[in-house]
Design a protein around this nucleic acid. Sequence first.
DNA 1: ATGAAAGCGCTAACAT
DNA 2: ATGTTAGCGCTTTCAT
Lengths: 345, 345
Amino acid sequence: MPEAQTRPEPAPAGRSTMKDVAAAAGVGIKTVSRVVNEESGVTAGTAARVRQAIETLGYRRHDGARLLRQGLRTGSVGLIIEDLADPFYAALCRAVEEAARHRGSLLFAGSSAQQPPRERELALTFCARRVDGLILVPTGTDQGYLLPEQSAGTPIVCVDRPATGLVADTVLSDNARGAREGTEHLLRQGHRRIGFLGDCPELHTAAERLRGYRAALAGAGLRGRADWVAMGAPEPARLRPALERMLAGRRPVTALLCGNNRITVTVLRELASLPHRPALVGFDDFELADLLAPPVTVIAQDPAGLGRTAAELLFARLAGERGPAQRIELPARLIPRGSGELPAR
Amino acid sequence: MPEAQTRPEPAPAGRSTMKDVAAAAGVGIKTVSRVVNEESGVTAGTAARVRQAIETLGYRRHDGARLLRQGLRTGSVGLIIEDLADPFYAALCRAVEEAARHRGSLLFAGSSAQQPPRERELALTFCARRVDGLILVPTGTDQGYLLPEQSAGTPIVCVDRPATGLVADTVLSDNARGAREGTEHLLRQGHRRIGFLGDCPELHTAAERLRGYRAALAGAGLRGRADWVAMGAPEPARLRPALERMLAGRRPVTALLCGNNRITVTVLRELASLPHRPALVGFDDFELADLLAPPVTVIAQDPAGLGRTAAELLFARLAGERGPAQRIELPARLIPRGSGELPAR
DNA sequence: ATGAAAGCGCTAACAT
DNA sequence: ATGTTAGCGCTTTCAT
């Protein structure tokens, strides 16, 4: 009569251990271990008694202790991105989670918030918890602090940006090529004066995109002008005057390449009030880009692809892969939607 | 001369332990422990020798072992949301992370993907890792499986939706009130035929929002019509005909309340091609809502507030709070932007 | 100031 | 089929 007691004995506060279960079932601790881990060599009757005791006590195996004893993997990976709330990194994070789940791994996740000390603290704390591996969007200018962890056997994969002072598997978008194709697209529409609004040039992605922009201009035999380029933090206070400068004067730019999402959005807000809008291509896709007027042409990265690939590299290392550090670049592809197809008046 | 050797002895593969450090430094293991944990009672000279050995061996304390021995907290919390990549939940996640960080806790994060077995597996796995507490967006219809964990002392906080079969602290948006205010806003613009497109009525949030919508109509002395309401999965294939039905006929709706973000977006895509657009209020804010034409009026939730509040409740329990389970409802506020202020023609 | 021994909860390696 | 012992890496307790 399993339903006899309306409420199963309110389990005592605190966690019970295998010892408690063993005592309650009148068996040795190893028998409990066998039942819990579904090993063979336990009579049906004994197993039933043990299971009953487990139920009554609300026992749950302590995986921390188990892993310590087994000494191998902890079944967890650490992921450090800039910001868990950013849609781009959130998509990357989700892909890593999915890959980890398929390998039976849990995910420690953290945001570096673009602060190198936070990245470092998170990474080292994860290592102290003995994560099986680390996936990292490097923020600081030096990841050398991870060298000891790496030589101790913790595989590290960098994603979105390469590390400095550390040789590790790395997964990037092909930023230069993407920016180049975006710029070439504008050139094909007849634009000759194209501005580039980018993030801080210290960021690898920003520098690469600038490089791609310049390569496209050079490829078309054009010499860009210094005041068509504005690099720096994506603050409205900085972007507004930069934009005004590009659009003012006798020879304003007729098209813009925006170096990332935040810049694109800020620029769109500024542009909303203007009578004649320049053509615009944004780096990074974003939701509802197709619903704006005009719909926004973008160079789309594949955040989920970045995350998935990074996780695949990591688990390959955990599976014993020994080759030299890999560097994989994922294509960024142009999605024409309208804003990038506006002609040069 | 600390910079003498160009490269510090390449640390041996595998992790070294306190025992290794003790042997290398020629001291007892307890002395190493003292140095690592910055306890007093170690001569400067001894400490220096130990630190040297730590450096050379690339030693890092194993927090798993430490926590096992200490037996108290593991300094980690588990968070289970529907989808780490969803901007709403991503913002919630980030807020939880921030709160955890301030208390020295790490974050295990996972997506239930709206699959009850996944929610359950994640939750129980987190508990097996002995997270100090659990924050959960319930997906299944029964969270009773968590009762043993709860009585074993693991505090559980539900967020966004209440649990079933489990009494726990809960943080929600005031969905009914939000939907009511959104509807009343449309009524004030003169609308009398207002449609509601909601998610599956099994979802607590969807049901509450429907309730708020009906309350507003009733409050205005109106009897809504059954075919002005369409509840179900937010698939375009389902929404399109539902929308067509509401907008067709002799007495079409002149305004729409959309039950969540995905529905709003899908509806906006459908509406884009229409000559006469109904007024629209969406539940949930989203980026760029202000840049659409017309800008979209929404009832905005506070995902970060939900996450922060949930974390606060959790840490209060961990700090010893003993009172009955709390239920906190956070206001959802109307943000008029244009689409909800279109008059009833 | 320093260290030896016991034990956290569990499993591996042997008993019986 | 079942139990006993040792030990994972660390901290706690108690000697020295």
